[in-house]
Nucleic acid binder design. Structure first.
Length: 944
DNA sequence: CGGATCACG
DNA sequence: GACGTACGTGATCCGA
């Protein structure tokens, strides 16, 4: 997986002593001294801000000393005996440190009779044993014993005051020995602050020299016998016992009991409420302003992340600045290098490895990432510091002279270590595409960042009428960098004269391709900077960023469809529609294009004279399903025929014909493409082909689902969240009766019918179901009336009853609209924002449309967040359960489809249900259970 | 290329 | 006083 867990352990007690001495003696409005607390608060702020950085925390806890007593006092009664009392204006700040920690909603570890250092050591080792990286936020020299690498997991330290990282090299520089021997050095030199004796007269220099020379403490002490007569020799012999005692005292206890599970230290966003309260209480106004603004000026990078801590009003929108970022020079395409030799490529790779951050873009021969061939790769390490590596340029004519370029396999061999290096973040714009292309060349790419996804997490819904709402690269570059990129059309042309990228001359190709990498690098700086300031970090880092490789793999797997089955259906549908068309023409009395709503409207309402033709704003009669059904009810045979004709042509053109064409020639499977930024609410969308709208509601349509099949020996498994949006509505709106019904596993629509009408009949249940859905979508009396076929008055009465029985719903709607009007966006339980720039429109229709969408977005979006979390965890969960052959193939909003060996059904079902049912945890604990329904079969149709 | 229609959750 | 009435998508067809 791209992201490694990284635990930050903050040595809180040590920090405040240092902060106290370094910061001015501030007091809060009540006169309480808070200088050290302020320093501590800003430190946590900065750490939280680092959540999105390459080496930043994924998990974090603060460790404090609860008491000064520990096992060391038992073996040495003078331990820390001469430590002076803390200054009196520091004493009242100790409890405030806990308050500050709580305000950030961070776990705080304090155990009686255990020193913070030992607790940190124990947690560090625990995390390391699980393969996590660890950063100890401290500069305490005792803790330097822990620095180093073990089984691929690293422990380092961070001195936040000096803003310096401490790695093995730094420890060696300080002590002259590697970390594991620091204890020996400390034992010799002693520590006056902790009153550790050491050897009197031996300081750091002598101690490190002795240990470096002899290897360890015992050997150093033994060596005294052979020394020339000296003061040092005498002291080593005389105080040997002191040194040995000191060795025990400086040894960290690495097996303390761990009161909090490290998994529970996950940084999952900082709720703004308690933090704002804390900042306010102690008069930390500058921090409070940043929190309230939810945005900062670009030259003030030290702002806070909290995921849900933004209050940015629509007017405070920081997007749309066309100012180039100050430190970035204008794009200069002439600065780019075309890399044509392996030596030059190696030079770029080693520079990229050193910079830890590289923007990457692939150029290909087509748009379909599962079919396109790789034509070249561009890299960028900074503004105007970019190159293009052509790999398959040259005319389509195989005899045409090809430009000099590195052999594909040589280039990939040079790039693979860089692209797979944990230490280097690869930035893409829509990285899923590049991942898919490169995967077909056996190139693994991890970890990645994605500017398209970051843009979506910051600005979903922010565009107006298609202006500035997208997340395409050219659009973002224009919007954020004030620059216009070369377009693909300019380079490759359009229409019939269009050439493929491989035919573009290298100088031109370099300008285009390297520019894409260059601007991706620049966009990244801009967008990634905004994430913590605008509360986008949690949803990006915890949901959408880790999802990218998961979805890429799903696309790569594809799903098998039975071509012969589809071809058979196409033929049936063709025969039938031909027959229907003749009948329709006969009934109409003339031939016309049945597929033309305009001509059909004229036939129905003018030629045949049916009543009730309604013209829309386009001036043409509406002939949609509801109209045709009405006519059918009035006895119009032609309406029935048209309905049937429409159904069959729809199924044929959109499904049975199109799906056959979508079968990939190489894999023999159908590979959809999911968009992570397509739906404003955070849902995925599916294109080319859309596999999220395969028919299921009618028997004839379901035949198409039966054409989606498993390979021989395998089955398909479909796992659905049952009624997830209603469950979330019950939780979010705190609707007692609905929560109770879900807890009891009741039929929710029946329960609604009972509450509303006092009895459950087929009729009242159906009405209740309609009303339940209406609620999710933002209800209006006319809309409901139309659906139920009743008068608006009656619909209003039902709405009133609903609100009366379920008062939480009305409150939810009110509160949601108020916050959206105030802040400009709605939010899911996981902190995903959707913007509603039209919520205050003077145009009533437009405004009401926004209101309905705003009521729905938190529910639909939370559901999307939950299934995404399940997807992210699914692969590891299946692997851990020894089920590597179970493959997740499709997502359909509340459903996941897997392909698996028949023999794995039982075991896989358990894992899948467990992951899906618990996907909200631990970030969100729902008041309702998440019900999962699982089915299996040889085809998708039979798995339901 | 926009509108109308209809497939899905 | 008129507006135009359920949320979120994508594919296909027609016709300007």
């Amino acid at each position: 997986m791209a992201d490694k867990n990284h635990l930050y352990l903050v040595d809180g007690s040590a920090y405040i002593f240092r902060a106290y001495h370094r910061l001015p003696p501030l007091t809060d409005p009540e006169g309480t001294p808070v200088g050290a607390v302020y320093g501590y608060t800003t430190m946590l702020w900065k750490l939280a801000e680092d959540l999105d950085k390459a080496d930043g925390p994924t998990h974090l806890a603060v460790v404090l000393d609860k008491s000064s007593h520990s096992f060391r006092n038992e073996i040495y009664d003078q331990y820390k005996a001469n430590r002076p009392d803390p200054p009196e204006d520091l004493v009242p700040q100790f409890p405030l440190i806990r308050h500050a920690t709580r305000a950030f909603s961070l776990p705080c570890i304090e155990e009686p009779d255990v020193e913070a250092d030992d607790m940190i050591a124990s947690y560090a080792r625990e995390a390391q044993s699980k393969g996590w990286d660890v950063t100890i936020v401290s500069s305490d020299k005792d803790l330097m014993q822990l620095v180093g690498e073990r089984d691929g997991a690293r422990i380092d330290m961070l001195d936040t005051m000096k803003n310096a990282r401490i790695y093995i090299e730094e420890v060696e520089e300080k002590f002259g020995v590697p970390p594991e021997k620091v204890g020996d050095v400390l034992a010799l030199m002693g520590d006056s602050v902790d009153n550790i004796p050491g050897i009197f007269g031996v300081g750091p220099k002598t101690a490190s020299k002795l240990i470096a020379e002899h290897g360890d403490l015992t050997a150093a002490l033994d060596s005294a016998e052979d020394m020339k007569k000296s003061k040092l020799k005498e002291r080593l012999i005389e105080h040997r016992a002191d040194a040995e005692l000191s060795r025990v005292l400086v040894t960290l206890k690495e097996d303390c009991g761990l009161p909090v599970d490290i998994d529970d230290m996950k940084l999952d966003g900082v709720p703004p409420g308690p933090l704002a309260q804390f900042l306010e209480k102690h008069g930390f106004t500058s921090l409070l302003r940043r929190l309230d603004a939810g945005s900062g000026s670009p030259d003030r990078p030290n702002n806070l992340n909290p995921a849900k801590a933004e209050n940015a009003g629509a007017e405070a929108s920081p997007q749309g600045s066309r100012q180039p970022l100050p430190e970035m020079p204008a794009v200069d395409r002439s600065s780019y290098e075309c890399v044509q030799t392996i030596d030059r490529l190696k030079a770029w790779v080693s520079r990229a490895e050193a910079s830890m951050l590289v923007a990457v873009d692939t150029e290909t021969s087509a748009l379909d990432s599962m079919a396109a061939d790789l034509v070249g790769i561009s890299l960028a390490l900074g503004p105007n510091d970019a190159c293009y590596i052509p790999l398959a340029h040259g005319g389509t004519d195989m005899f045409a002279e090809k430009p000099d370029q590195i052999a594909l396999e040589d280039a990939l061999a040079a790039l693979r270590p860089l692209l797979a290096s944990d230490a280097v973040t690869k930035i893409f714009h829509n990285g899923k595409y590049d991942l898919n292309v490169l995967a077909r060349y056996d190139v693994e790419v991890t970890p990645i960042d994605d500017t398209m996804v970051i843009s979506f997490d910051l600005d979903a819904g922010r565009g107006l009428d298609g202006i500035g709402g997208g997340h395409g690269m050219d659009e973002l570059v224009d919007r954020h960098l004030g620059h216009t990129c070369l377009t693909f059309k300019e380079v490759c042309g359009t229409g019939k004269k269009a050439i493929s990228f491989g035919e573009v001359p290298l100088d031109r190709a370099t300008e285009y391709a390297a520019e894409d990498a260059d601007v991706t690098w620049r966009l990244y700086q801009h967008l990634k900077h905004r994430l913590p300031l605008e509360g986008g970090t949690a949803i990006y880092e915890r949901v959408d960023r880790p999802l990218v490789p998961v979805v890429a793999r799903m696309e790569q797997r594809g799903i098998k469809v039975d071509r012969a089955n589809l071809a058979g259906l196409s033929k049936e549908f063709a025969t039938e529609t031909g027959r229907l068309e003749k009948e329709i023409h006969a009934l109409a009395g003339r031939e016309f294009t049945v597929g033309s709503p305009k001509q059909l409207g004229d036939v129905l309402f003018d030629t045949l004279g049916y009543k009730g033709g309604k013209k829309g704003k386009s001036g043409q009669y509406s002939t949609d399903q509801s109209i045709l059904e009405r006519l059918s009810g009035e006895g119009a045979e032609i309406a029935d025929k048209v309905l049937e004709w429409r159904q069959l042509t729809k199924l044929k053109s959109t499904y049975t014909d199109a799906l056959q064409e979508a079968i990939n020639a190489k894999t023999g499977r159908v590979h959809t493409s999911y968009s992570l930024v397509g739906a404003q609410t955070g849902r995925l969308s599916s294109t080319d082909p859309n596999l999220q709208n395969i028919p299921i509601r009618t028997a004839i349509g379901r035949q198409i689902r039966d054409a989606f099949v498993a390979e021989e020996g395998n089955v398909l498994l479909a796992a659905d969240y049952s009624q997830i949006e209603l469950r979330l509505a019950a939780h979010m709106a705190d609707v007692g009766p609905l929560k109770e019904a879900f807890a009891n596993g009741e039929d929710i629509h029946a329960r609604t019918a009972t509450e509303m009408f006092g009895e459950v009949t087929r009729d009242t249940r159906a009405q209740a179901k309609t009303i339940n859905f209406a609620i999710l979508y933002g209800i209006s009396r006319w809309g409901l009336a139309g659906r139920l076929g009743v008068e608006a008055d009656e619909a209003q009465a039902m709405i009133d009853t609903y609100f009366k029985r379920f008062p939480g719903i009305q409150r939810y709607i009110q509160e949601t609209l108020e916050t959206v009007r105030e802040r400009g966006y709605s939010e899911t339980l996981f902190g995903r924002k959707t913007w509603f720039p039209r919520i205050g429109s003077k145009n009533q229709a437009e405004r009401q449309g926004s209101e309905r969408a705003a009521i729905n977005a938190p529910i639909q979006g939370t559901s999307a967040d939950i299934i995404k979390r399940a997807m992210i965890r699914m692969e590891a969960a299946l692997a851990d359960a020894g089920l590597p052959k179970v493959q997740m193939l499709l997502q359909v909003h509340d459903e996941l489809v897997f392909e698996l060996p028949e023999s794995d059904i039982d075991a896989a079902s358990k894992v899948i249900e467990n992951v899906m049912a618990n996907a909200a945890r631990p970030a969100v604990i729902l008041d309702v259970p998440l019900g999962i329904e699982i089915g299996t079969g040889k085809s998708w149709g039979s798995a339901h």
